[in-house]
Simulated scan of single mutants.
Amino acid sequence: MIIEFDSDVFRWAAREDSAWFFTAVPSELGHEIREIPRPYRGFGSVRVRARIGGTEWATSIFPLAETDSYVLPLKKAVRDAEQLVDGGPVTVRLEVLDG
Rank of each mutant, 00 (worst) to 15 (best):
V9Q: 03
T59Q: 06
D17T: 12
G99K: 09
V78L: 07
A19M: 11
A58R: 15
Y40N: 10
L84G: 02
H31F: 11
W20T: 04
V92C: 02
F10Q: 05
A81H: 11
G54C: 10
D8K: 15
E32P: 05
Y40I: 11
R38Q: 09
R47N: 07
I2K: 10
P89D: 11
R51F: 00
D86Q: 08
A13D: 10
L94I: 06
A50N: 03
I61D: 01
I52P: 00
G88L: 11
V46N: 01
S27Q: 15
S45C: 15
A77I: 10
T59R: 03
G44I: 04
D17V: 08
A14M: 12
V48R: 01
R51L: 03
R49Y: 06
F5A: 08
S60W: 07
T59A: 10
G54W: 12
E4D: 07
D17N: 13
F21D: 00
P39A: 15
T23R: 05
K76P: 00
I61H: 01
L64N: 12
F43D: 06
A58P: 04
V78M: 04
W12S: 13
P26E: 04
G99N: 06
A13F: 01
V9I: 12
G30F: 01
D80P: 06
A65F: 06
W57I: 10
W57D: 05
V92I: 07
E95A: 04
E28T: 15
D86H: 05
D8H: 15
D6F: 07
I61N: 01
H31C: 12
P37F: 00
E56F: 08
G54Y: 12
V90A: 02
F21N: 00
M1Y: 00
G53N: 10
W20V: 05
L72M: 00
E56M: 14
D17P: 02
V48I: 12
L94T: 05
A65L: 11
P63W: 08
G87C: 09
T67G: 13
E56D: 12
G42H: 02
E95W: 02
I36T: 09
E66F: 08
D86M: 04
R15E: 11
R11S: 05
E16Q: 14
G42P: 02
D86C: 03
E4V: 08
R93W: 11
G99E: 07
V92E: 01
A24N: 04
D80G: 07
R34N: 07
R34E: 06
R47I: 06
S69T: 14
F21Q: 00
V78T: 07
A77L: 11
V92F: 01
V46F: 03
V71L: 14
A19F: 06
F10S: 07
Q83T: 10
V92D: 00
F21S: 00
A81V: 08
F10I: 11
D17C: 05
V71C: 10
Y40L: 13
K76Q: 13
P63L: 12
T55L: 02
L29A: 06
P73C: 12
E16P: 09
A65C: 04
E28Q: 14
I2D: 04
A50T: 09
A24F: 01
P89K: 15
I2H: 03
G99C: 05
P39G: 13
L94V: 06
P39M: 08
R47D: 09
L84E: 03
E4Q: 13
V71T: 13
M1G: 02
F62M: 08
V48F: 00
L64A: 15
D80K: 15
D17K: 08
G87F: 09
V48Y: 00
P63E: 07
E16N: 14
